[in-house]
C-alpha cells in the first residue's frame, strides 16, 4: 500500500515519504503548515487513493478526548428507567460511539482524520496518548476493552495555534507542508483547472506571487485562495492582458478573493497611489 498522490492532489516527494512511513509503521502522522495548503484535504485523498473508509473528527475548543471514544448518556437512561422502558436493562443502549471507536471497529483498515487538534484544550493531545499508541481504550460502563481490528491510518492536522506536548510529538511522524513553489503551484492549478489558458495562468501566478512578496502584508493569500481567485477570473472571463502589470501600480482585479483584510487592501491602494504619483 503506497500513496503516490491522486489526480486531484499534488503531493510532493517528502509528503509522500512521510505518509508512507506513517502507513507502514501504523503511527499517526502530524501535518502542520500555513493555512490553505491542503492539510485537511490530504486525509480524504489518502483515503480515496488507498480505497479506505474515511472518518473525520473535527476538534473544537470545547472538544474533550472522551468525545472521540464514546459518550455515556446517563440522562436518557435515567429517563427511560422512569418510563419503565426495557431498553434500560442494557447499558450498551446508552453508549454512543465516537469517531475513534468507529475507526477502530471498521472491518477494513480506515483513515481517521483528527482535524485541527490545536483548537482543543492544551492537555487534549496528552489524553489521547494511549489510545493512539496502543489503539485501544477501556469502556468503564461496560467493562470492556475496545481494540482496533485494523490499526487505522491516523492523520492529525494542526494550525500551530498551540504547541503540542512532547510526549505526543514523540509518537507521531511529522510533516510540515511548505508553501508550494511556483512549479508545484502550476501543477496544482492545472490539476484543478485543466482547461486554463497558459497565458492567464502565467499572469495570475505572477500577480499572486508578487502579492505574497509584498512586505508587511498581514495575511498572505494561500493556495486555496489562489484557486478561488482563478475560478473567479475564469467565471468573469477576464482577459489576461488586463492582469498584466506591476501589482504596485494597480490593485489586481477581483482582489477580494486574495486579500481578506481591510488593512491589506488599504495598503495596496496606498502603494498603487504612491507609484502612480511617482510615475506622474
Amino acid at each position: 500500500m503506497i500513496f503516490t498522490g491522486t489526480d486531484k492532489y499534488v503531493a510532493t516527494d517528502d509528503l509522500m515519504t512521510a505518509v508512507n512511513a506513517a502507513i507502514a509503521l501504523q503511527r499517526p502522522l502530524l501535518i502542520k503548515g500555513e493555512p490553505g495548503t491542503g492539510k485537511t484535504l490530504l486525509a480524504t485523498e489518502v483515503a480515496e487513493a488507498l480505497a479506505m473508509p474515511f472518518y473525520e473528527w473535527h476538534i473544537k475548543s470545547t472538544t474533550k478526548a472522551n468525545h472521540g471514544l464514546y459518550e455515556y448518556d446517563a440522562v436518557s437512561r435515567l429517563r427511560d428507567s422512569q418510563l419503565g422502558d426495557d431498553r434500560v436493562q442494557d447499558i450498551n443502549n446508552y453508549i454512543k460511539r465516537g469517531m475513534l471507536w468507529e475507526a477502530f471497529a471498521s472491518d477494513q483498515q480506515a483513515v481517521l482524520l483528527i482535524d485541527e487538534i490545536d483548537k482543543a484544550d492544551i492537555e487534549f493531545p496528552n489524553d489521547l496518548l494511549r489510545e493512539l499508541d496502543r489503539m485501544e481504550f477501556y469502556v468503564y460502563e461496560t467493562k470492556e476493552t475496545v481494540t482496533a481490528i485494523n490499526r487505522p491510518v491516523v492523520i492529525i492536522t494542526s494550525n500551530n495555534e498551540k504547541e503540542l506536548p512532547d510526549a505526543f510529538l514523540r509518537r507521531c511522524f511529522f510533516h510540515y507542508i511548505r508553501f508550494p513553489d511556483e512549479e508545484t503551484m502550476e501543477k496544482i492549478v492545472e490539476v484543478h483547472f485543466p482547461a486554463i489558458k497558459k497565458k492567464l495562468l502565467q499572469e495570475a501566478m505572477e500577480v499572486f506571487f508578487s502579492i505574497r512578496d509584498v512586505n508587511g502584508i498581514k495575511k498572505k493569500p494561500s493556495t486555496s485562495e489562489l484557486l478561488d481567485w482563478i475560478k473567479l477570473l475564469l467565471a468573469e472571463d477576464i482577459d489576461p492582458e488586463t492582469l498584466r502589470g506591476d501589482t504596485t501600480k494597480a490593485i489586481p482585479k477581483l482582489h477580494g478573493a486574495l486579500l481578506k483584510n481591510e488593512q491589506d487592501v488599504h495598503m495596496f491602494e496606498r502603494l498603487a497611489f504612491m507609484s502612480r504619483r511617482q510615475g506622474a
Binding site: 516527494d13 517528502d14 515519504t17 512521510a18 508512507n20 512511513a21 507502514a24 509503521l25 502522522l29 502530524l30 502542520k32 510529538l169 514523540r170 507521531c172 511522524f173 511529522f174 510533516h175 510540515y176
Partner: peptide, 23 residues
C-alpha cells in the same frame, strides 16, 4: 520496513519526518 528504499532523498525525508517534530 523499506520506506526509504529508493534514494538518499527519501532517506532524508524519512529521517526528518520521524526525528524532527518542529519545523
Amino acid at each position: 520496513k523499506g520506506v526509504a528504499k529508493g534514494s538518499v532523498d527519501e532517506f532524508y525525508y524519512l529521517s526528518r519526518a520521524s526525528l524532527v517534530k518542529d519545523e
